[in-house]
Amino acid sequence: MIGWRGNIPRSSKGKYSARIAWLIRAPRCIILQSHTAGRPQQKANCMSRDLIAHNRPVYDDLHPRVYGTAAGLVGWFVLSAWILFDRQSEVELSLMFVTVLLFVAVLLPWLLSQIWRRYDHRHDPHARPIPFGEWRRGEFAVWGSTINSSHATIDMLLPLAAVAFGLTAIGIVFLICASLAP
């Protein structure tokens, strides 16, 4: 059963405009009633009056630390592939192709960002470098909307981290199985 918390004051029961004013000022809490183990329980879920977080800066580019972390995770992937899967000329050519592919995948966006930074005249550059903590508490512009900057960071780095650490785990299991084989 769902209901609104609180009662309309008696002084405003006959006045339509006073009822609307009271509803606007009333805390928006939904009372949820459930019956577990034969006993009714009530729980109130209150909504915030602020639907939009105010005074949070909106950034349209990722922080340089995020790019550095992404490059570090790609480097981790390449190193773990070479260290854990190199079998002296059996897979060396394949590892070389993977290394070149990932090197180009990191190098091209970095070069494009350097060119963009040099010739971007849309807005003035920041007067000072933005600290990572301040950037993390802000918003990140995505198409026509914004998301929390820390969520944007997680969305970008989580697949890279999963691949890098997953390959490392698979390589460790591979080495353990290879050492135990007769």
Rank of each mutant, 00 (worst) to 15 (best):
R49Y: 09
R49M: 06
D50I: 06
L51K: 13
I52G: 00
A53F: 05
A53N: 03
A53Y: 08
H54F: 02
N55S: 14
N55D: 15
N55E: 09
R56S: 05
V58S: 10
D60R: 07
D60V: 07
H63R: 07
H63N: 00
P64D: 06
V66A: 14
Y67H: 15
G68K: 11
A71R: 09
V74D: 01
V74I: 13
G75E: 02
W76Q: 08
W76P: 00
F85H: 09
F85D: 01
D86F: 04
Q88D: 13
E90C: 01
E90R: 14
E90F: 05
V91P: 00
V91Q: 11
L93K: 01
L93D: 03
S94W: 12
S94M: 10
V98Q: 09
V100Q: 05
L101F: 12
L101M: 10
L102D: 05
L102P: 00
L102K: 03
V104W: 08
V106M: 12
V106G: 02
L107H: 03
L108T: 12
P109H: 03
W110H: 11
W110F: 12
L111V: 14
S113G: 10
I115V: 08
R117Q: 08
R118I: 02
D120Q: 02
H121K: 15
R122C: 05
D124T: 14
P125Q: 08
A127S: 13
A127P: 08
R128Q: 13
R128M: 04
P129I: 03
P131E: 05
G133V: 00
W135F: 06
R137N: 14
R137C: 03
G138N: 04
G138W: 02
E139H: 13
F140I: 07
F140M: 12
V142T: 11
G144A: 11
S145R: 14
N148L: 10
N148E: 15
N148P: 11
H151G: 01
I154D: 03
L157R: 07
P159F: 04
L160M: 14
A161N: 01
A164C: 01
G166H: 08
G166V: 09
G166E: 06
G166S: 08
G166T: 10
L167C: 10
T168R: 07
A169I: 07
V173C: 03
